[in-house]
Structures are given as structure tokens and as C-alpha cells.
Amino acid sequence: MGSGKASRHQVVTWGASADRLGPAAADRSYRLVVRTSVGGTHPRIRLSNAFGDRPVTFGSVYAGVRAEGARLVPGSNRRIAFGGARSVTVAPGDSVTSDPLPGRLAAQSDLVVSLYVSDAAGQATGHGMAMQTSYTAAGDHAGEEGDGSWSERIGSWFYLDAVSVESGADTGAVVALGDSITDGWQSTSDTNRRWPDYLSRRLQSGSGSGVKGVANEGISGNKVLADGAGQSALVRLQRDVLSQPGVRTVFLFEGINDIKAHTGVTADQLIAGYRQIIDRAHAAGTCVAGGTILPFKGWSEFDAAGEAVRQEVNDFIRSSGELDAVTDFDKALRSPYDPERLLPVFDGGDHLHPNDKGMRVMADAVDPAKLDSC
């Protein structure tokens, strides 16, 4: 019989795709607020310098539980080590995972990771559109639990790109690979109303699925085939998705930016990109779920040619059998009176991005049992 330790493993509980964030700054602290999905013990964090052109040194790193704003629950802020050391230097293009922090991290809680960047220059790495208020300050304030030093608010996550916990071996995670709709644009900031957030809450509440962790790897403006707003889904698949611990299912919901950019991308080309993602994910031992592309009539780039590509791609998603599970987001959110449009009650106002209600309907359309389907 195996030991208790062997029956447990690390599972991602939060994630955000890395991208370029402008100039890096030395002697600066970041207090980053993230929402966990699955709970567990011995949390670890991952810090990324994926897009840095110079090393970055973190002089001190802490994790605590948020009370309100930038203020932490007294006694919760604890130092995180890396290979037993209090500081760590991450080479350009690299990332580092911390030592496990003793104790338990609750599901659906606001974890606060505070970083002091003692030395940095060149290009910073992080996630631009967090839809969550975090904080920054000059100097080293990572170990402080009060909010007195944290008057400067930011809307991005710097350097932190994943948090994982130790959980039972039967517990896995789903990683959402997407664009601005997955990233949460037009949902209400600071309320965790992106569709993966709603899905996370469903999965924690007795869904019957062993998939409990959720990582949101959406990037606003991202494409399947071409770099631009972040590296393409094909390029970033390994770093942002398959490298996450405990990932059981990749949820592929991307393609509208390839279609509406008027670059001449055909349905066959986009489907070929999907097939590469499906093949690579299957080779890594994960399931692949897919979501149909939402309607976008009324958006400035809409035209009949793009709509024809969307329809053909959605036919592939629905009927090819190449995905292990399919969620028909298009059917769930389109108008019955004009199927090329979002139903107005779900429209965030720009005819492309769903509002909070639409985000919830998307999550409700996912069958949790099918996230374990391969």
C-alpha cells in the first residue's frame, strides 16, 4: 500500500498567463490579490521572468490572507522561501517555483502574495488585464500586514503566474486557454465574475467531478495562430497550460480574434491550429474540452466573411468528435431573433464580450462531469 504522501499531489488553484508589462522597476514592492479555486495544503507560488531580458531578484516574498483592500488578516502573512533561501534571482526567460508553505489554503479565498523586487531592469513580466485591484509601493513592504504603505493601486499582476496546493490524487484542474472573454473583459472588476470564476464556484459545490482547480489563462486580444496580444495559443500552450501541476483538462475557447482581424485566416487554418493544440494536450495526457465561438454582429469588425468562418469552425467544434467534450457557448448566448448577435441581456455593451450575466450562463453551460471525459 502506498504512503499517504504518495496519494497526494500538487494542483493549480490560480493562474494568469504571462506577457510583457513594460519597464521593470527595482526597489519596488507589489501586493497582488488573487482568488483561489480548489483548497489544499502546502501552497506554492510560481514567479515568472518569461519575457525579461535581464535577471530579476526578489529580495523577499510573503503570502497572507486578505482582510480588506491591501490589509491582511493579522498573523497570516508568512515568508516564502525558494530552495530554503529568502531571496531568489530568476534568469531571463525562466521561472521559479517556491518551497511549500506549511498549512492550508482555503478554497475560494483571497490570497495576497507580496513581492519585493530588489533588483530588476529591462522588460517586466506579468499579466496586464487582471480585472482585480492590486497594489504597489516603493521600497520593501512585503512583510507588512497593514495597508499604510500601499496607497498606489494597479490593475495588473506582476511576475506571479501560478499558485498551487497539495490535494488528493483524485483531484485535478481545468485550465481555460482563451482571449479577452476568458480574461474577463466587461465583467465587473474586483468581483470574480469571469466565466472561469463562476465555473470554479460550481466545481467546489459538489459537482460530482474530480476537477476542482481552475486556472484562467486568457489574454485579451490573444489569437490561436499569430502572436500579438501575447504569444499565440500555440506558442504559449506549454508554459501557460500544460506546465501547470495537476491539470486534467484543457478548455480551449479561442479564435474570434483570428477571425475578426481580417488577415485572411480561413476555417481550415484555424481548425488546423485547434488540432495541434488537441494533439499536444492529448500527448501530455490531458483531456481537451472546447467551447464554440460566440456571435459578434454589431462589433466594428464584423462582416459576412468572418461570420462564415465562425460558423464553419463552430461546426467542427460541435461535430468533429476530435474534442473530448464540447460546450456550446454560441447556442447559450446567441439571440433567437438574430443568431449572429449576442442576446442583449448577455451583451456587455460592445456586442462581443458578455456581461456578468452572460459570464454566468457560460459557466452554467459547462457539464462538470465531462471535464473528466478522456
Rank of each mutant, 00 (worst) to 15 (best):
G126C: 12
R44I: 07
I45L: 14
L115K: 12
G40L: 04
D110N: 12
F58M: 12
P55R: 00
V61T: 15
A121S: 15
L72P: 08
A130F: 10
S151A: 11
F51W: 11
G148P: 04
Y116D: 04
F58S: 12
G155L: 00
S98D: 05
V112E: 12
V113S: 05
E68L: 00
H127Y: 15
D110K: 07
L105G: 08
L105R: 03
R104W: 05
T36W: 03
R54T: 04
G75Y: 07
T136N: 03
Q132C: 06
S118G: 15
R78S: 13
D140I: 01
G84M: 08
S114I: 09
D94Y: 02
E68S: 11
Q123D: 15
T136L: 09
V65I: 14
P43K: 09
E68G: 00
T133R: 08
G128Y: 12
G69C: 05
R79V: 11
T97A: 11
G103I: 06
Y116M: 03
R153L: 00
L101D: 01
A107L: 02
A121L: 07
P102A: 14
I80Y: 11
A124R: 09
H141M: 03
A67P: 00
R79M: 13
G39K: 06
V90W: 05
R54Y: 00
G148V: 01
G122I: 06
A91W: 00
A106Y: 02
L111Q: 09
A63Q: 11
A91S: 13
W150R: 01
A137W: 01
S109W: 00
A120M: 07
G148I: 01
R46W: 07
R86A: 15
G146A: 11
R44N: 08
A106K: 10
E68Q: 09
P102K: 10
T136D: 07
A142K: 03
G122W: 10
R66N: 05
R104A: 13
A138C: 00
F82W: 14
I45G: 13
Q123W: 12
V112Y: 09
S60F: 02
P100A: 03
E144M: 05
S118K: 11
A142T: 08
D99G: 10
G103F: 06
